[in-house]
């Protein structure tokens, strides 16, 4: 079972839920930038765990499926066709052997996820198949996919439910992307950071009322925010301490930097905020040039929203699993 990369797209990487447990060695988690989108793609193809999927960025890859395979696409709205026939997102599609899946541009959002039944079965590195481009860990020493890569896929539990014909088919139902994708670019919840109070008055106001723009100079490690420079009341000399995805740093240039999935584990810049975990997937779906605004949030509110989202996501995944079982019985 394998999938051949014909064209790699702009930046396509294998990602799973990440690489926890090694931060004390200087190894960050990496993993999918939009976690719920990864989980839903896996659920739709019948994968129980968070198997590795392809995270596409702005322009997707073209892939050839050697064997018949079930796939699902979630995340940013991406052009997708199999041998010239458009296929739907947020559902499960069955591809006949030899299919060529062409993923194009994204009309909204920045990152789409392609899961396959059984997951992409590349070797785990420190317990994860995530590509960490910054630390060069994961598939092929932590690089993005290239033309010619042959990606093995794992044994697919839902494969048995497939029709044994050569038709391209999709399920008669799909899930509603609206709860999982922020089409409106709403403000992101921002918790206070250790040094928030040291921003000067103007900067504090801008941080919560101003509109920033995601810089072209952004990647999986950090999103740089253009539009306003911020300043502290006085310069600070700090010693390095732990940083996290979502940490909003202020380097001496005054341009705020939001750390993302590949955040280094330590850093020494002033921390002027912490983006709520629940809103990180929404930031991950902003593309360079998109607006980024913040609203102040309390820790309790952020914890509550995260808890609610996890419960909603868990329930939806259970519903998907039940419906997939029913479909199988019906066949």
């Amino acid at each position: 079972m394998s999938v051949i990369v014909l064209k790699p797209g702009l930046l396509s990487t294998l990602q799973d839920a990440g690489r926890p447990g090694h931060a004390a060695l200087g190894v960050g988690r990496a993993g999918a930038m939009d976690g719920p989108a990864l989980q839903l793609a896996n659920a739709l193809v019948g994968n129980v765990d968070n198997e590795a999927a392809i995270e596409c960025t702005l322009l997707g890859p073209t892939l050839k499926f050697i064997e018949a395979t079930v796939i699902a696409l979630t995340g940013a709205t991406i052009e997708a066709s199999v041998d010239g026939r458009p296929i739907p997102m947020w559902t499960r599609c069955q591809l006949p052997a030899g299919s060529v899946l062409q993923l194009g541009g994204m009309s909204v959002g920045c990152r789409s996820y392609l899961a396959v039944g059984g997951g992409f079965d590349v070797a785990k590195v420190l317990g994860s198949r995530s590509t960490d481009l910054h630390a060069r860990l994961g598939y092929a020493n932590g690089r993005a996919l290239r033309a010619g890569d042959a990606l093995p896929t794992g044994a697919c539990t839902s494969q048995a439910s497939m029709h044994h014909n050569d038709e391209l088919t999709s399920l008669p139902w799909s899930i509603d992307p609206h709860p999982w994708f922020d089409f409106a670019f709403r403000p992101l919840a921002l918790l206070a950071g250790k040094h928030s109070a040291l921003l000067d008055k103007r900067s504090q106001q801008i941080l919560h009322d101003g509109k920033f723009v995601l810089s072209k100079d952004s990647n999986r490690t950090a999103g740089r925010l253009d539009g306003h420079t911020l300043s502290l009341r006085q310069p600070l000399e700090l010693i390095s301490e732990a940083t996290l995805p979502g940490t909003l740093q202020l380097p001496p240039s005054g341009q705020p930097i939001a750390l993302l999935a590949e955040a280094p584990v330590t850093g020494g810049y002033p921390r002027i905020g912490q983006i709520a975990v629940v809103d990180l997937p929404r930031l991950a779906q902003r593309r360079p040039g998109d607006a980024v605004c913040f609203r102040p949030s309390t820790l309790d509110d952020a914890v509550r929203r995260l808890h609610e989202r996890e419960q909603r996501l868990g329930k939806l995944i259970q519903t998907i699993q039940r419906r997939l079982r029913l479909d199988r019985t019906a066949h």
């Binding site: 926890p20 447990g21 931060a23 004390a24 010693i239 390095s240 301490e241 330590t266 914890v303 995260l306």
Partner: peptide, 21 residues
């Protein structure tokens, strides 16, 4: 928990779901 020691601090990463209010 996951621990990230630094010069003068240590970060503790935890799952808030395991520590319900």
């Amino acid at each position: 928990l996951e621990y990230v020691p630094a010069y003068a601090s240590v970060l503790l990463r935890f799952d808030p779901a395991h520590w319900p209010a």
